[in-house]
């Protein structure tokens, strides 16, 4: 019997980022307007697999998700063994735009979650004319930290286990166990210090409160969606951010937490399909 193949296809490419070769893994499904997806801190592009298997999405969108260097199946650059990994606003913008260019994504809509929901604001600010819009999931221009990240990378605490245990509380209690634990599995698999290095960007290098008001939403529409159970990037953080951006729209999603696309795909599509529809109609 033929295997039930999913429509997702994964490939590797080498990009030069910050002057160094980086072997990058990406996967994609569908055809149409490019939708470039950015995973959360300490995780990888698998979080978007449900969207890539949803014909309501893939009939109109070419959905692409890549793993940042150090994440998932993307390698850290050669020499990594003596470095402390730190994501910055500059390196995050560079990687995202490099992937879009390498894959010839024309005016992609960029959708990111958590730290991905943060960086899309800077992308809209800096590269709005080159984008078809941004979607920030669990995104805001700034938020208050809620734990000490030094616990994430030390020899007496398992980084994957503690990372998963910390973020487990950000998954809505209504989310199905199957998807809750799949979401947490990605955190458990994260390389040593990678989650912590991502949070350097999230906490130390991405306070965008000084610039989000300058985003031109006529050029680059901004949609922000946040789950009611997200106490990391709270609904209040998201609504405040949207209020600061003329023309931005914010939605608080019921019975969802910090990982809407992976923790409860059915519930998430109720919210994301209308947004994708809006972006498609604006583009046409």
């Amino acid at each position: 019997m033929a295997p039930a193949l999913e429509p997702i296809v994964g490939r590797y490419m080498t990009l030069t980022l910050a002057g160094r070769d980086c072997r990058i893994y990406f996967e994609e499904a569908g055809a149409g307007i490019p939708l470039l997806c950015l995973h959360t801190a300490g995780a990888d592009g698998r979080q978007f697999r449900h969207l890539m298997c949803d014909p309501a999405v893939t009939d109109h969108w070419r959905v692409v998700a890549f793993d940042l260097p150090w994440h998932g199946k993307s390698n850290p650059p050669v020499g990594w063994q003596d470095e402390e990994y730190r994501l910055t606003t500059e390196s995050y913008v560079e990687a995202t735009m490099a992937v879009a260019e390498a894959l010839s994504l024309e005016r992609p809509v960029v959708m990111g979650c958590s730290m991905g929901g943060r960086i899309v604001l800077e992308l809209a600010h800096r590269h709005g004319a080159a984008l078809g819009g941004v979607i920030g999931l669990e995104g805001a221009d700034h938020q208050q930290p809620w734990y000490d990240t030094t616990w994430l990378h030390r020899p007496d605490v398992h980084g994957g286990e503690v990372g998963a245990a910390l973020v487990s509380g950000l998954v809505a209690p209504q989310s199905p166990d199957e998807f809750r634990w799949e979401t947490l599995w990605a955190y458990m698999q994260s390389g040593p210090g990678v989650f912590k290095g991502d949070l350097y960007f999230y906490r130390e290098d991405s306070d965008f409160r000084d610039r989000v008001a300058q985003i031109d939403t006529a050029l680059c529409p901004v949609h922000l969606l946040t789950g009611e159970y997200d106490f990391s990037c709270t609904p209040e953080d998201t609504v405040r951010t949207a209020a600061a951006i003329p023309g931005a729209e914010a939605v608080v999603m019921r019975e969802l937490g910090h990982f809407p696309m992976s923790e409860n795909p059915e519930q998430f599509r109720r919210y994301i399909l209308p947004v994708l529809e809006r972006l498609r109609s604006v583009r046409a």
């Binding site: 809620w146 734990y147 910390l166 487990s168 509380g169 950000l170 809505a172 209690p173 009611e228 159970y229 997200d230 106490f231």
Partner: peptide, 8 residues
């Protein structure tokens, strides 16, 4: 949401 997790 306010009481779902000890860290919330």
């Amino acid at each position: 949401p306010s009481h779902a997790d000890i860290f919330a």
